[in-house]
Design a protein around this nucleic acid. Structure first.
Lengths: 222, 222, 222, 222
DNA sequence: CATGAATGAGACTTCATTCAT
DNA sequence: TATGAATGAAGTCTCATTCAT
């Protein structure tokens, strides 16, 4: 029988560690959300820490307690976005491969058309931050590898393929954001990518045209 | 008849002073070159007009006589770069179509590998400036159209195709600049693009592998 | 009923917690020690209360419970230093007069040479705080008065003499701290001071050259 | 008759070198004067560049064109003060030696009594800046050397003597500034210093009591 | 035209200080 | 009491911009 008091004894500074933790986490999240919203309006280099403070509704000094420089903000938002994205995709299709790749590209393009601010933020981040690009590339690479192993995809060089998929998707997002209304934009883009990866034209067309579940209601942030 | 020659003899830089016209043109050119060099080092948003003055070796005020804002600089450099690029490509292959497209993409990637500063400048400009992107897109579009008409290319949507080619090329330039050493990088990229545009795998491989004339000696600027 | 004794056994720093009194006194002492250490590194005006918190290992708020402003800190450290100094000198020589004065000056110079941080702290404090200067001056004044009464010293104006002795000693400490290695520095300084106070050259030389007991092991603080 | 045109011809870029030069020099001087005035009110570490801007009547940015940090200001003012001081002393007595030393010390003390702000500035600068101390020490050293060579002074160690004279003078200035009204303060201090340097009591008293020409009207600045 | 000193708005940065826990 | 997140005043610093020369 262990004496329950010992729980406290074991970690005497647990209180210390937790003190103000929840508030701190909440503030940080608010800051990241605000930053993402700003990236939807202006380029990464134009975000001013003071603007971030105002958008979040905290003081100038508070922002500095969390982020010392603009780049700290970009970095943190990139990581957070990558995490959320992966959770989203994993929830939608647990199966790796060409299909998931197509799905990911298409959902990017669709969301960008629906929420231009989101798309602009994505492009801004990915253009600026190699952290963002790496994070996205890591997910794509998994699908490419599985697709290649299964014979669906026949690209000759994985790294080049990753670059092609990523940048083409970003370009499509960018043009969707700029308001080019293209019929079934997401499918056209996905098909072209799959072709580039060596999939047969018929399969590419079929896979890229699969019906997609309706988008989830867009949350407040990203 | 005044002996104008003597004036030049007396002061080595009299040429500069002789004609306002020439001087003005030369200063502008120097400013553009300097700006391009800076874009090879830092992002477009980080170029400070005062830095441009220093790099060019003129005064703060002089820069302002030519460019009122940073965006003026980006705009001017973008146009100039597009012009030089088109001249370069036109000189290399007068024939429009898939082949010229492949050539253009490959020469971008090669030059980026050879001169990372040039590549960085290109990516920075294209990421930031839609003027730059449009200028490049216009050239690509001609080739795509001709290639499609001739049946070499079978893309279903021209705008999407333009975006794919342009952004994939930019992505490849970016990764070349970052130092990823890939065997025959330019050909691999071109082949993937041609595939995506619907060319048959055999033709794509053959076209993308064509031997290329050696690069011209890199000039001082762009 | 929890067994309070066990609490102490379980945690090694329970002593800290036992009595608010003791803890408070200890915290204050730690703060003063930390402040003195910082004065050994940077000027009095550069000490930040937040830095003091970090150096002491307590929170920002805790410092504020003890000292409201920087000047409070300077004041408290000055008084504490003066007290310790007087105890030290009193322990070494109970006899007032020229000899004790010489001893005091010499021990300052010696300690500064041995522990530059200590010397720097002393100079910083004395340059900034008239409290510090007054405290030191008060001790010197006693010796000057006794020395004058006994005929050993013949200075014409006590206040001026105090200033001369104090500032010369500080200057000597400062140069010792800066690393000027002078043979028998302490004796040379003391002799010059005694001369200035009107002592005969022979007596001054003899008195200033008296052998000194070895320095006590330097404590952690001041 | 000289051809006036030639003046310009000879140095074609003289205009360039001079352009705005007078204005620049004037602004710099105003800034130094203002800084010195501020040092008469508060410690060196308390001078804010923005305050300096306001005191001088120029913008914040202008100050930054001249001085990047507080220390730059201290440094520049120290050098300037040293130059002016040397000019002043050289004008008053061209003869090096104990007499000039006495004169220098006395004029410091007198001026401090007359113009407390000046004295405070001097003490603040000398306490903070080793540049200031070195500059003053260099002048003193010359006199000490000559005085020693001539046999008037018999100090055993020059470096220690420099320190004694300098810091005693500073201490005297400090106490004069604080309002201690001492009869013939300057002479008492000088006498004590000369004694400390080994001069015979009679000579020291006589030399330190020499009548001094009346002080020049205090200028606007230092 | 070119120059570069001066400007001042706007962003960054530091820190003493407050206060809920 | 101790904590530390949040605050905001005060200062630093950067640069596009103006203008007299």
């Amino acid at each position: 029988m262990k004496p329950p008091a010992r729980v406290e004894t074991q970690s005497p500074n647990a209180a210390k560690v937790t003190r103000g933790h929840k508030k701190k986490a909440r503030t940080r999240e608010q800051l990241l959300n605000a930053a993402f919203r700003i990236y939807g309006r202006k380029s990464v280099g134009e975000l001013a820490l003071s603007e971030l403070a105002e958008e979040t509704g905290v003081s100038n000094g508070t922002v500095h307690n969390y982020f010392r420089t603009r780049d700290d903000v970009v970095h943190a938002v990139s990581l957070e976005l990558a995490v959320r994205f992966s959770q989203h995709i994993a929830a939608a299709t647990p199966v790796l491969g060409a299909e998931r790749l197509s799905l990911a590209v298409r959902s990017f393009v669709r969301r960008a058309a629906r929420e231009p601010a989101w798309g602009r933020a994505l492009v801004n981040l990915a253009s600026y931050s190699d952290v963002m690009r790496s994070a996205l590339a890591d997910y794509l690479r998994e699908d490419l590898r599985v697709g290649h192993a299964s014979g669906e995809l026949r690209h000759t060089h994985e790294d080049v393929a990753v670059v092609m998929v990523l940048w083409t998707a970003l370009g499509a997002v960018e043009s969707a954001v700029e308001g080019s209304h293209i019929e079934a934009h997401d499918s056209v883009v996905a098909e072209m990518i799959l072709l580039g990866l060596g999939m047969s034209p018929q399969k590419a067309k079929r896979l890229a045209a699969r019906v997609l579940p309706d988008a989830p209601a867009s949350s407040d942030s990203y």
